[in-house]
């Protein structure tokens, strides 16, 4: 579904991604871990099309289409979704109106008619329950004055509403309380199916106890330096990243 080949990207002249290779197939759950500043959010941003990043080398293919050629909205309509590490507050844009616009633009792209008001409300109710997203937040301005946890839930609520093929969750777990973490993880698990793939970026093995990954990647200094299974996350939790960095230096000095 998604193929990343030797991806290099920089921001404001600073090299951030230095040759990422990653293959994600239908139905897979990938976790990306790695120290602060290693480039995890940058990778997510490049995939979603944030334009302050310049891709200097490499390719990204999504369902056979060149993702890097597309505007951010086209990527979303093709089925790529990014749950932001820091969701933006937009005063004056109502959550509901925003979602309706987004949903209908995606539907129009797929040649589907706009949802009728009643159908839209029905869908909203259903997905709201999935992540236990309070209905009073629905009528407020987009993320305005939302608590950290409420913003993260809103990201997952949007994910449920827009139903993408590939969802990238950037530290959705940070800021969530213990109950919310369970609820949101259950929500994500319910959305999983054989057609959909996920990339979860996280610092904590705890999330991966709820959302069991098929693969765990370690991103360090703009590169994936190790790939393993869920056991790798446990090991990282215990030992930190230093041993990996050392391993890498040994390899590089050879």
């Amino acid at each position: 579904m998604l193929t990343i080949k030797n991806l290099h990207a920089e921001v404001e002249g600073k090299k951030i991604l230095k040759g990422i290779n990653l293959e994600i197939n239908k139905g897979e759950m990938h976790a990306i871990m790695g120290p602060n500043g290693s480039g995890k959010s940058s990778l997510a941003s490049v995939l979603a099309g944030r334009d302050n990043y310049t891709v200097t080398e490499g390719e990204v293919w999504f369902n056979g289409k060149n993702l890097l050629d597309m505007a951010p909205e086209e990527r979303a309509r093709e089925g790529v979704f990014l749950a932001f590490q820091y969701p933006v507050e937009i005063p004056g844009v109502s959550n509901l109106n925003f979602l309706k616009t987004a949903l209908n633009e995606i539907r129009a792209y797929k040649g589907l008619p706009a949802l009728e008001a009643r159908e839209f409300l029905k869908l909203t109710k259903e997905k709201q329950q999935l992540v236990d997203f309070h209905s009073n937040l629905m009528n407020r301005s987009l993320n305005e004055g939302f608590s950290g946890g409420e913003k993260k839930r809103n990201e997952i609520f949007q994910l449920a509403m827009l139903d993408p093929q590939l969802a990238i969750l950037d530290e959705t777990d940070s800021g969530l309380d213990i109950d919310a973490l369970r609820i949101v993880s259950n929500g994500v698990n319910k959305l999983r199916d054989a057609e959909k793939s996920f990339v979860v970026i996280t610092h904590y093995q705890r999330l991966l106890e709820y959302i069991i990954p098929d693969f765990v990647h370690v991103l360090y200094n703009g590169r994936i330096i190790k790939t393993g299974t869920k056991e790798l996350a446990l090991e990282l939790e215990e030992r930190g990243y230093d041993w990996l960095k050392e391993e890498l230096h040994l390899k590089e000095s050879v």
Binding site: E73, I90, P91, L162
Partner: peptide, 27 residues
């Protein structure tokens, strides 16, 4: 820029995103 990217990353085209933002500005 942040707001525009957020809206567009949800599938909302540039013009529709601008319309939403102007509505928000004047709300």
């Amino acid at each position: 820029e942040e707001s525009m990217f957020y809206l567009r990353s949800r599938g909302i085209g540039e013009d529709a995103a601008k319309a939403l933002m102007v509505n928000a500005f004047s709300h």
